[in-house]
Lab assay of single mutants.
Amino acid sequence: GPMASDKRPRTAFTAEQLQRLKAEFQTNRYLTEQRRQSLAQELGLNESQIKIWFQNKRAK
Rank of each mutant, 00 (worst) to 15 (best):
R10L: 13
P9D: 09
G44L: 05
A23V: 08
E33G: 08
A12D: 08
R8L: 15
L31Q: 03
R58Y: 06
R29C: 11
N56F: 11
T32A: 04
F25R: 03
M3T: 15
P2W: 01
Q34Y: 09
F54S: 00
D6C: 09
R58Q: 09
R29T: 04
T11A: 09
E47P: 12
K60C: 14
G44Q: 06
Q34T: 13
I50Y: 01
A12M: 09
Q41F: 08
M3Y: 01
G1K: 02
L21K: 00
E24M: 03
R35H: 10
A4V: 09
T32D: 13
L18R: 07
R29H: 11
F25S: 02
Q17S: 03
Q55V: 07
T14H: 03
E42G: 03
T14G: 03
R8Q: 15
A23E: 12
K22F: 08
M3W: 00
L31G: 02
I50N: 00
A59Q: 09
F25P: 00
G44V: 04
T11F: 12
T11M: 11
R36N: 09
A4Q: 15
L21P: 00
Q17I: 08
G1S: 03
R29Q: 14
F54R: 00
W53R: 01
G1Y: 05
A4F: 15
Q55L: 06
Q17E: 03
Q34S: 12
S38E: 12
Q49F: 08
L43V: 04
A23L: 10
S38L: 10
F13A: 02
F13H: 03
K51M: 13
T27G: 07
L39R: 00
G1M: 03
T32L: 02
G44F: 04
A59W: 12
I50K: 01
K51N: 14
K22M: 14
S5D: 15
E42R: 02
K60F: 04
L21C: 01
L43T: 06
N28H: 07
Q17N: 03
K60Q: 10
L18I: 12
L21I: 03
Q41M: 10
N28T: 05
E42V: 05
P9C: 14
L21T: 00
A40C: 05
A23P: 00
K51W: 12
P2G: 15
Q37H: 13
T32I: 02
T32E: 05
A4Y: 15
S38I: 12
M3S: 15
A59R: 15
T32M: 03
T32S: 11
E24N: 01
R29W: 07
S38D: 12
A15S: 09
A23F: 08
L18Y: 07
A12K: 14
F13Y: 07
A12Q: 13
G44D: 07
Y30E: 08
P2T: 05
N56K: 09
L43I: 06
E24G: 01
R10T: 14
Q55E: 13
E42D: 06
Q37A: 14
R35V: 06
P9V: 08
P9I: 07
W53V: 02
E24I: 04
Q55H: 10
A40N: 01
R10Y: 07
A23W: 09
F25K: 02
F25V: 03
A23S: 10
Q26Y: 08
K22T: 14
N56R: 13
M3I: 15
G44H: 05
R58I: 13
K7H: 11
E16F: 10
F13Q: 02
W53I: 02
E16A: 10
W53M: 02
I52V: 10
Q41C: 06
L43C: 03
R36A: 14
L21H: 00
A23G: 05
K22P: 00
W53K: 00
A4G: 15
A23Y: 09
R20L: 06
G44A: 06
Q34E: 11
L39G: 00
K51F: 13
E47A: 12
N56I: 11
L31P: 14
R20D: 01
E33T: 10
Q17K: 04
L18H: 06
Q37K: 13
K22V: 13
R20Q: 05
T27K: 10
A4W: 15
T32Q: 04
F25Q: 02
A59K: 14
A23R: 07
Q34F: 08
Y30T: 12
Q37F: 08
M3D: 15
P2E: 15
T14P: 02
T14D: 05
Q34V: 11
N28M: 04
R10E: 15
R8D: 15
R36C: 14
I50T: 01
F54W: 09
Q19F: 07
Q34L: 09
E16W: 07
E47I: 06
Q37W: 07
T32K: 04
F13M: 08
Y30I: 09
N46K: 07
T27P: 01
P2S: 15
N46R: 10
Y30R: 07
W53G: 00
R8H: 15
K51C: 13
E16N: 07
F25L: 04
Q49V: 14
L43M: 06
R58D: 06
A23D: 11
L31S: 02
N46F: 08
F13C: 04
T14F: 02
I52P: 01
K60H: 11
